[in-house]
Design a protein around this nucleic acid. Structure first.
Length: 372
DNA sequence: AACTCGTGGCA
DNA sequence: TTGCCAAGAGT
């Protein structure tokens, strides 16, 4: 056999689809073979899966589906209920856009998701990837679905030398050349399953890959080095102070963060500014300069550390007891200490709560309230 | 075009 | 332990 003929052969969709038919993952949002696809579930899962692992999204998807069975239920819910259910999953603009998108689908499209990619793209939180994915998976439209998995698969198939993220347009163009007209939804999910289970970022299982032969990176025995990547920037570090103010009845002072930006719309304990130049070794009196109210602040032992996508944070916690007569400052409110778990608390503030609970034992429950 | 925007799992 | 990174979007 002429080796050159093999070298030139393009990856066959049929080979991938055959692999997919035997190896497709069973996922909470994925319709079984022959089962009717629900565009709402496809959309909900795609939003949750943006930059998020299948493992992390799974439980959230099931909780959302149980609480909001369809797009109208989600559209009718208060935003804060959506944020509470999303708390811990990260990238909270997704939750805000999820809610806005549900309302747009109800208002613009009568409660049914549009099938056309262009109309999907116009919805809040739906970008090029998600629009293509919904069109392909939910409506079997021949869209070119390019996510991180597909980029990696294509970069290896064609041994693309250009580094990420500059290579994205080229990878998308190459992906378009191998996308078949038939079974677009299955093909999209197949390429993503391949990337997630076989063509993994590290040590891909090429021996099990249906596209082993046409893969140029594999032929060079260099599959691990694709896609090429530019050097990453260092992650800066910031510091700050969180304030744990608790009344004798167990109420804790919390507030909502501004509606946009980092952790937008989520609940927090009051904090000072987060910056590189905050000196956590400063005396308590200095650390308390940004406290929401004057009180006898004491510093709790330890600290909270948390890593965001673009900076690391270290938070010391100052705690104090508030008199029952103290009114919450403007913008803040009292929340029951034992009901904080149900609040829209992002992970970093769950760590603050945990630290406070370790170091500030809950006041003994009132005998009248506890009797039963 | 480059930044912002979370989190937890894993090697 | 530290870094990598996962079905990206908005600005």
């Amino acid at each position: 056999m002429a080796r050159s003929a093999e070298t030139l052969r393009a990856p066959e969709p049929a080979a991938l689809l055959a692999w997919y038919d035997r190896n497709r993952r069973r996922l909470p949002w994925r319709a079984e073979a022959g089962e009717r696809v629900d565009p709402y579930r496809v959309w909900l899962s795609e939003i949750m899966l943006q930059q998020t692992t299948v493992k992390a999204a799974g439980p959230y998807f099931l909780r959302f589906l149980a609480r909001f069975p369809d797009v109208r239920a989600l559209a009718a819910a208060p935003l804060d209920d959506v944020l509470k259910l999303w708390a811990g999953l990260g990238y909270y603009s997704r939750a805000r856009n999820l809610h806005a998108c549900a309302q747009a689908v109800v208002e613009r499209h009568g409660g049914r998701f549009p099938a056309r990619e262009a109309e999907l793209l116009a919805l809040p939180g739906v970008g090029p990837y998600t629009a293509a994915a919904i069109a392909a998976i939910a409506f079997d439209q021949p869209a070119v679905v390019v996510d991180g998995n597909v980029e990696r698969v294509v970069a290896r198939l064609f041994a693309v030398e250009e580094a990420m993220p500059a290579a994205k347009p080229k990878l998308r163009a190459l992906a378009a050349t191998i996308a078949p007209a038939a079974r677009p939804g299955d093909f999209a999910q197949a390429t993503m399953d391949l990337g997630a289970t076989i063509c993994t970022p590290k040590r891909p299982a090429c021996a099990l890959c249906p596209w082993d032969e046409p893969c140029l990176a594999r032929r060079r025995a260099d599959q691990d080095s694709f896609p090429r990547k530019a050097a990453k920037a260092e992650r800066p570090s910031r510091r700050g102070v969180a304030f744990w103010l608790e009344r004798a009845d167990g109420a804790v002072l919390v507030r909502s963060r501004p509606p946009k930006g980092l952790l937008g719309g989520m609940t927090e304990t009051p904090t000072g500014r987060w910056a590189e130049d905050v000196d956590l070794a400063a005396p308590v009196a200095a650390l308390a300069a940004e406290a929401p109210v004057a009180a006898r602040w004491r510093r709790l032992p330890g600290a909270v550390t948390h890593v965001f996508s673009h900076f690391a944070l270290e938070l010391v916690v100052l705690a104090a007891e508030a008199p029952m007569t103290l009114a919450a400052p403007p913008g803040a409110r009292w929340a029951a200490r034992n009901e904080l778990d149900g609040e829209a608390l992002p992970s970093v503030f769950r760590k603050v709560v945990a630290l406070a609970r370790e170091n500030a034992p809950s006041p003994s429950p009132s005998r009248t309230a506890a009797s039963r």
